[in-house]
Amino acid sequence: MSSTALLIKDLVEKHGKNRNSLMPILQGIVQEERYLSEDAMINVAKELDLSTADVYGTASFYTFLDTVPRGKNIIRICKTISCHMKGKDEIIETVENMLKVKVGETSHDRNFTLLTANCLGWCHQGPVMLINDDIYPDLNPGKATSILEEYMKAH
């Protein structure tokens, strides 16, 4: 059994074999693998006795349930107006230069995917970015650089 299949088995056991568990199960897969592969969706459909199209239908609705491969770390920079006013463009530029990617792309070593996000709920402390589930408010280019360097060192 593949590691994805094992993971799905665990998640189904934990959350229950019903449609109401679909979101927590998909979220659990993304937590581990950063995206939902075709195999994973087919497997979930089988486990929950749903059509694969149904699972894909739900998954493709949600920004955080990616159905294309992503890097090990997903960076989401808030692009909504308050963060825009506080200089999110410079943060995006800084990160793009460091990772040598544009928004929407994944770095060559597959360690990072850079995305923008709608309001992350830190308007009083913008600009702000999420890396995976961790939040980094009050950014400036220098601060963003050192945060990212820490992540790069870890790989």
């Binding site: 449609r19 109401n20 679909l22 979101m23 998909l26 979220q27 949600y62 920004t63 349930l65 309001c119």
Partner: peptide, 18 residues
Amino acid sequence: SGAYICGEESALFESMEG
């Protein structure tokens, strides 16, 4: 999972129901 519309109550139920 990152959908603003799920703050709308009936969309939120739909989301909780998978």
